[in-house]
Computed example of a mutant assay.
Amino acid sequence: MIQIYLTIFNILIFLPLRCIYFCKWLSNLLHTKTNLSYFFAVNRNEAFNLGSDARLICSNKIWTKAVFVIWDIELKHKTCKISFNHEGQSSNSCNDGKSLQNSTDQSFLHIPNFSVNDVGVYKCESTYTGGNENYNITVGVTAPPVVSAWLERRGNKMVAVCRAERGIPAANISWSVTGNQSVTQQNNPDGVVTVESQLEVPEDIDRENLTCIVRHQLWERERTLAAVDAYAYNRA
């Protein structure tokens, strides 16, 4: 009988305490639900052509169902935020032309005249009826190079030069013949890259058929230039 009384006593004393701890834990969990969503952000990469008008989409949900959208933007030289909610309230601390816009069914971040200054990490939170989504988008820039090829007489040697200027990322240059060649790469402060390859033309090579081959990430096909006419330009 004493054992039964002790059991009832323990239940009456400790059960409320356990309930208090559990309820407190549950309350904290619900209170931090919004913050926890950041730990489940989806990472992805995007790249836009230099000078283009970029459209960055946070979620594929219909924008009319959105409760709010927040963009936290981390660039090389600054950070800023753009947001709006379903009540029509909005804020924009970027002050560089970026803006939130709506198409017929989606909300997107519009970045006009995309430049190297727009490269960075764009963090987006979209809350809509039924849930929310978080994305960390690493945004880069691409630019096709301007290519050229020519021959130069240097003493008793003939040197073929092939250049791919102001590309992002750097272009790759090769030649239709093997020989003594050197490659230099110039990284400009504005982020563009110029690559130049110089080939010492062997005496037994038919110069009429000497070409350089330029490959770049933006091109579906390689570009081939004949190195016979001085400064023969072939723009991308």
Score class of each variant (00 low, 15 high):
Tyr5Arg: 10
Leu6Val: 15
Leu6Thr: 15
Thr7Gly: 15
Asn10Ser: 06
Asn10His: 01
Leu12Gly: 05
Ile13Gln: 05
Cys19Glu: 08
Lys24Gly: 03
Lys24Thr: 11
Lys24Ser: 13
Trp25Ile: 00
Leu30Ala: 10
His31Asp: 14
Thr34Ala: 12
Asn35Pro: 00
Ala41Cys: 12
Arg44Leu: 06
Glu46Gln: 01
Glu46Thr: 00
Glu46Val: 00
Glu46Phe: 00
Phe48His: 09
Asn49Trp: 02
Ala54His: 06
Leu56Ile: 12
Ser59Thr: 13
Val67Ser: 09
Val67Gly: 03
Trp71Pro: 03
Trp71Ser: 04
Asp72Val: 05
Ile73Gln: 04
Ile73Arg: 07
Lys76Trp: 06
His77Lys: 15
Lys78Phe: 13
Thr79Arg: 14
Cys80Gln: 08
Ser83Ala: 15
Glu87Trp: 11
Glu87Pro: 00
Gly88Val: 04
Gly88Arg: 02
Gln89Ile: 06
Gln89His: 14
Ser90Asp: 07
Cys94Val: 05
Asn95Trp: 07
Gln101Val: 09
Asn102Gln: 13
Ser107Pro: 00
Phe108Ser: 09
Phe114Gly: 05
Phe114Gln: 05
Ser115His: 09
Val116Asn: 13
Tyr122Lys: 04
Tyr122Trp: 10
Lys123Ile: 08
Cys124Gln: 01
Glu125Thr: 13
Thr129Gln: 14
Glu133Tyr: 08
Tyr135Phe: 11
Pro145Trp: 05
Val146Gln: 12
Val147Thr: 10
Ala149Thr: 00
Ala149Trp: 03
Leu151His: 01
Leu151Gly: 04
Arg154Glu: 14
Asn156Thr: 12
Met158Trp: 03
Cys162Ser: 02
Arg163Gly: 00
Arg163Tyr: 00
Arg166Phe: 15
Ile168Cys: 05
Ala170Val: 01
Ala171Gly: 04
Asn172Trp: 05
Ile173Gln: 00
Ser174His: 07
Trp175Gln: 04
Gly179Ile: 10
Thr184Lys: 08
Gln185Phe: 05
Gln186Glu: 12
Pro189Tyr: 02
Asp190Tyr: 11
Ser197Ile: 01
Val201Leu: 06
Val201Lys: 03
Ile205His: 04
Arg207Lys: 12
Glu208Ala: 08
Asn209Asp: 10
Leu210Arg: 00
Leu210Ala: 01
Leu210His: 04
Thr211His: 06
Cys212Met: 03
Ile213Glu: 01
Ile213Asp: 03
Val214His: 05
Arg215Gln: 12
His216Met: 03
His216Asn: 07
Trp219Thr: 08
Glu222Tyr: 01
Leu225Pro: 05
Leu225Glu: 02
Ala226Val: 01
Asp229Tyr: 06
Asp229Gln: 13
Ala232Cys: 12
Arg235Gln: 07
